[in-house]
């Protein structure tokens, strides 16, 4: 077992590494997903027989997607920087606050990546569909 240098462990208290942050990107996906679904479902139930144009739904989904991707991108970028703190080595399996900090950052980054892909998957549906059917 090697001891890490003091610099590696300074200013990384566990209170500043909340577990919930890694769940934020997929949670953003979930909110985006529900917003898209509910918007589409309610619009199709309430307005598809009226003169209202389906573009409303597309614009709404575009806005949701832009906001969601911005949030996911921001959190993912933050996670990536956290993973690159001092070093970018993998795996993060040292018994040190530094590797704990970097692991949480890397997990956040990976989940942001997955969430962004899944968000784009859902948004693509609004590109393909020009109407409720």
């Amino acid at each position: 077992m090697n001891s890490t240098t003091e610099i590696e462990n300074q200013n990384l208290p566990e209170e500043e590494d909340p577990l919930w942050l890694i769940f934020m990107p997929p949670l953003t996906w979930a909110v985006h997903f529900m917003a898209c679904y509910l918007t589409a479902a309610i619009w199709c139930a309430k307005f598809s027989d009226t003169s209202a144009h389906f573009a409303t739904v597309r614009i709404a989904i575009a806005i949701y997607t832009a906001v969601a991707l911005a949030i996911i991108g921001g959190i993912g970028g933050y996670g990536f920087l956290q993973h690159r703190h001092i070093t970018g080595k993998t795996p993060h399996d040292d018994d040190t606050p530094l590797d704990r900090h970097r692991f949480l950052g890397f997990a956040t980054f990976l989940l942001a990546l997955l969430s962004a892909i899944a968000t784009i998957f859902v948004a693509t549906v609004a590109v393909i569909f020009g109407s409720c059917e």
Partner: peptide, 20 residues
Amino acid sequence: GLPGISIGIFSAASQAVAIP
């Protein structure tokens, strides 16, 4: 008999889950 766009949204998520 759900609207096609609703089906599409869930179909997209169903494909996405294959990644993880």
